[in-house]
């Protein structure tokens, strides 16, 4: 027998196979697209076609509603791993000139002794995001905001490249190194806290997260408290606010003093 005899409804096997398959498909389609949508009393459909479209997953436009006015600005910075990729030498040079006005707080070599963040060797994406947020008002600080307000996009990119280009100098470490606290290494899974180290160094780094080793203890503690109280809110999707709110005061102390006591070359080794 040749195949031509198979693909005809005169062949019993063909008609049975096609018939049963089609019947199952039709029955399940009726159940899935008509019966089940209407079996959900809590969902209202305008008509049968509306129900079918809903079951098929036709993309629907949300009804036009007026978005309530945001009382505070949120961060609008988009970061990808290609943001600020491949800095130019000229850009770094321009950044160095611009950075002179930052030196009073962040130190002439990007290493601060005034409880401001150390910027030397910080990831470019981090400085870029914070400057944009200061400029837009998503993050505010009495000292920082006036500096950022008048910066152009190019200047922000140049400053980011310049500080990322500087070597991570050993910071001022008043305390001896501490053992790794569990909040840094394990987080607290039952409270939804990821390990600090999975984004901020010691384990791994994620884009947009600053490396924290050698930063000022007072500064880190103040930021965690600001996140917890909602005073600082430029973290995307409340990532840091959710974490900081769930942290105990002891954990905040431990994390801040641990990172402050780490020399930055530990980060180099992990990278």
């Amino acid at each position: 027998m040749s195949t031509s005899e198979l693909f005809t409804f005169r062949n019993r096997h063909f008609s049975l196979a096609v018939g049963i398959t089609a019947a199952i498909l039709i029955v399940t389609a009726i159940a899935g697209f008509l019966v089940l949508p209407f079996a959900q009393p809590w969902v209202q459909f305008a008509n049968v076609w509306d129900a079918i479209c809903s079951a098929a997953g036709v993309p629907q436009r949300a009804p036009k509603v007026t978005v309530p006015e945001q009382s505070t600005r949120l961060s609008e910075v988009v970061l990808t791993s290609s943001t600020l990729a491949r800095p130019s030498q000229e850009g770094i040079g321009r950044g160095a000139t611009l950075a002179q006005r930052c030196a009073i707080c962040h130190g002439p070599t990007g290493v601060s002794r005034a409880d401001s963040p150390n910027l030397a060797g910080q990831y470019a994406a981090v400085i870029y995001k914070q400057l944009l947020d200061f400029r837009s008002g998503a993050r505010t600080n009495a000292v920082m905001s006036p500096f950022a307000v008048n910066l152009t996009d190019q200047e922000i990119a140049d400053l980011s490249h310049y500080y990322a280009y500087l070597p991570r100098l050993p910071a001022y470490h008043p305390t001896p190194q501490l053992p790794k606290p569990s909040i840094v290494i394990y987080g607290a899974p039952m409270r939804g806290i990821a390990p600090c180290g999975s984004c901020h160094g010691s384990l791994d780094n994620k884009i947009g997260s600053p490396w924290l080793e050698g930063q000022s203890e007072a500064y880190m503690k103040a930021q965690l408290q600001a996140f917890a109280s909602g005073e600082r809110r430029n973290d995307i999707s409340q990532q840091m606010r959710n974490i900081a709110r769930a942290m105990t005061p002891q954990e905040i102390d431990q994390a801040a003093s641990y990172y402050a006591s780490q020399p930055p070359d530990v980060v180099k080794a992990v990278d």
Partner: peptide, 12 residues
């Protein structure tokens, strides 16, 4: 994915 298609796949 639409619920109707999920149901058909479930049945198959």
């Amino acid at each position: 994915v639409g619920a109707g298609f999920k149901f058909i796949h479930s049945a198959f």
